[in-house]
Simulated assay, not measured.
Amino acid sequence: MKIYIWTVLLLGATACATAYQAGAATNSDYHVPAQTNDGWPVGTLSEAAIDSTLIIQMLGQIHSNKYQGINSVLLARNGTLVVEEYFGSFDRDSLHNMKSAAKSITSALVGIAIDQGFIQSVDAKLLPYFPEYDGSIDNWDGRKEDITLKHLLSMTSGIKGNEDAMYPTNDWIKFYLDQPLVAAPGDTFSYATGGVVTLGNVITRASDLRIPDFANRYLFGPLGITVYHWPITNSRGSQGLAMTGGGLSLRPRDMAKFGQLYLNGGTWKGHRVVSENWIAESTSKQTTSDLYGEDFGYLWRMLDREVGGESIRSYEAWGNGGMVDSTSWCFPHSI
């Protein structure tokens, strides 16, 4: 078995393209990443034993607007940043809205809350965290008492998402709990941003820390992430928490750190941030998505992609926009 430890981050277009057509490009389209004090070691493509031909072709085609809407491309191999390119007005310090790719960060925060003992396990029941709604949940179904955090992480709670209708309400948690069950918990995948917003509230209630404070202490701080924007919801039921279902904005190098953290098995610069068990469990198949039929872990997508005639298993974080105006991480792991 061949093992690849790569982090690929494309912002503004879907990641992990498997082939590039030939196009006019020169070595001037590629620049060695800058050495800064953010913790990233940097190197060249040749030092990483990567053939620069296709990389340079891709960068040239982006510069010539063959692929539009791409803000940045970053590539790390074996823990070293070897490609860092920005396009248009976007630069190293620009914040990029991650859209729903931020859900994978919420997954990590849940894992950390379990590692730290704030939450017992993914099998913890959901409703006991929200006693104020006892007896007042609409569309009541006794099976709602069986919903666990694992169901929210794998989007198998059985609660219909209905995301667009959630935003105008003043209590997103209550809205989510009020939605009818369309399946028994654990039976069927159903994409639900409201469930991920609810997970953020669970972390706060379990730890007594608002999400930015929790992230700063246990995730962003250890990764050296100091600049970000996480919008605060106006939802009464979410108690003014950060919108953990999406909307977090990070700098690309910091987004790539998060990817490298997972490829490192939960460590960054030798410091344990997330348990190795959580990395393995959250990026393993828990169910099958009803969106594209791919495997789904704990707020991670897993796909088998064909590259050079070989199949590569990847786990990926995706944001709204599909082929255009999206955020994607791709972490090829093994073939």
Results as ranks from 00 to 15, higher is better:
K2G: 09
L10M: 12
L11W: 05
A13H: 12
A19N: 15
T26G: 12
Y30C: 00
A34T: 09
T36P: 04
T36M: 08
W40F: 02
W40N: 00
W40V: 05
A48E: 06
S52Y: 09
I56R: 04
Q57F: 08
M58I: 13
G60F: 04
G60A: 01
G60K: 06
I62G: 01
S64M: 08
Q68A: 15
V73R: 01
R77Q: 15
L81R: 02
E85S: 14
G88Q: 06
F90N: 01
D91Q: 13
K99F: 14
A102N: 11
I114F: 04
D115T: 08
G117N: 05
I119G: 05
D123P: 07
L126N: 08
L126H: 05
D138G: 14
D138C: 12
W140N: 06
K150G: 13
H151Y: 07
L152S: 05
T156M: 06
G158L: 02
N162S: 12
D164L: 15
M166H: 01
N170P: 11
D171S: 04
D171I: 05
W172C: 06
K174N: 09
L177D: 03
V182P: 03
V197W: 14
R205I: 09
I211L: 12
N216S: 15
Y218P: 01
L219G: 00
F220M: 04
T226N: 11
Y228S: 06
P231N: 06
I232C: 09
G237P: 09
G240E: 04
L241S: 12
S249Y: 03
P252E: 09
G259R: 05
Y262E: 10
G265M: 08
G266T: 11
T267K: 13
G270K: 02
R272D: 11
S282T: 14
T283G: 11
K285G: 05
T287W: 03
T287V: 05
D290K: 07
Y292V: 10
D295A: 10
G297V: 03
R301V: 08
M302W: 01
L303S: 10
V307S: 05
E310W: 01
I312P: 02
R313K: 15
S314G: 12
S314P: 02
E316I: 10
N320D: 15
H333N: 11
